[in-house]
């Protein structure tokens, strides 16, 4: 089977999973105690008013009708109206999406830049101080709750040293870039970076630590393989032996593990957003849960689920590209 066909099949499977996600999220409302009306109606609402509200929200319909209405709505990009804000949920969710994506991407970049060289150094200088430092860091890194790390960073960097800001960020990446390009002002992008550093480090630390661990043990395995000895025997520079030969094969299993672990990146993003008051999907969903704003809760969970499925397909594609031995089954 060709790679393209494999990816198409994988996408169809993904679509099936997304459908399952939508169904589960939809059913969530029916296992939750209490009616949405309780949260929407005034406390002193008369039974008639409550019934009217239920009809307005479409809650008087049988479940299957509500389900198909919701499903067909989704296909048209309609997630209903926010109970609290009265605006379309899809618009609210979309407006929050860039902040979350920026945070997740920044954290991933932080993680990759630091972790892979650290893991490689740790393996190539085994039992040297570099190795001990790297392994200690990675142990502490995977054991630290990231919301606490965020608070400690705020305490030390912002409160203690008074350098980076902790207020809600005033500008997103796209407006900042527009400022830079159309008005030739770098202040926007500077503000963006200043607000991004602490959240990105907070979210990225766990991943850095985890990839260091995986890279180190993977590299130790690979460096013991006969092909590494053969590469040295033919006089190849050590740089190529390490990075072109051993690291390449180390990355293949790491990518699979990372694909599975991206869930905790998204989960971590939710809580990091909460700590830094970040205007993303995470704060949106937590706020919505507190007030039972169902269209927002459902929409945001579905978007997160879809994002996760899409990332996993991308990871599969990367995996097949790196590993020539993969069989597309």
């Amino acid at each position: 089977m060709s790679q393209a066909r494999f990816l198409i099949r994988r996408s169809l499977q993904g679509l099936l999973v997304v459908w399952g996600v939508i169904t589960l999220v939809f059913l969530l409302r029916f296992i939750t105690p209490g009616s949405p009306v309780d949260f929407v109606a005034p406390l002193d609402a008369s039974p008639e008013l409550r019934a009217q509200i239920a009809i307005n929200l479409g809650l008087h319909q049988p479940i299957y009708v509500q389900y198909f209405d919701y499903l067909f709505g989704l296909v048209r990009g309609d997630m209903g109206f926010s109970y609290i804000r009265g605006r379309p949920a899809s618009g609210i969710i979309l407006s929050r999406l860039p902040a979350t994506i920026e945070l997740a991407v920044a954290a991933t970049i932080v993680a990759i830049i630091f972790s892979i060289p650290l893991g490689v150094l740790s393996a190539t200088r085994r039992h040297e101080p570099t190795d001990y430092a790297a392994t200690t860091f990675s142990l502490v890194g995977i054991s630290t709750p990231n919301f606490w790390l965020g608070i400690m960073l705020i305490l030390i960097v912002s409160v203690g040293l008074g350098i980076l800001p902790t207020s809600r960020r005033p500008i997103g990446l796209i407006p900042a870039l527009e400022m830079l390009i159309f008005q030739l002002q770098i202040s926007g992008i500077r503000t963006w970076i200043a607000h991004m550093i602490l959240p990105a480090v907070t979210l990225g630390t766990y991943f850095t630590a985890m990839i260091v661990r995986l890279t180190r043990s993977g590299m130790l395995d690979e460096l013991g393989q006969p092909y590494v000895k053969a590469a040295r025997a033919k006089g190849l520079p050590e740089t190529l032996v390490t990075y072109k030969h051993a690291l390449r094969n180390t990355m293949i299993p790491i990518i699979t593990v990372l694909g599975l672990q991206l869930g905790s990146l998204i989960g971590g993003a939710v809580i990091t957003e909460f700590v830094f008051n970040w205007p993303g999907l995470g704060t949106l969903v937590i706020d919505a849960i507190v007030v039972r704003d169902w269209p927002i809760i459902q929409g945001a969970l579905i978007v997160i689920g879809i994002g996760f499925v899409v990332i996993n397909i991308a990871v599969d594609a990367l995996y097949t590209k790196l590993n020539p031995r993969v069989s597309y089954e």
């Binding site: 393989q225 006969p226 092909y227 000895k229 053969a230 590469a231 040295r232 025997a233 033919k234 006089g235 190849l236 190529l240 072109k244 030969h245 390449r248 094969n249 293949i252 790196l322 590993n323 020539p324 031995r325």
Partner: peptide
């Protein structure tokens, strides 16, 4: 290594890097 001395190993399957082409590895 390579110029004066070179070596062939017991198991060719594990002595070549599985994720690079054979031509590339010989060219190296």
């Amino acid at each position: 290594r390579g110029t004066h001395f070179s070596m062939i190993f017991q198991d060719p399957m594990s002595s070549f890097n599985p994720s690079l082409t054979v031509g590339e590895q010989i060219a190296e």
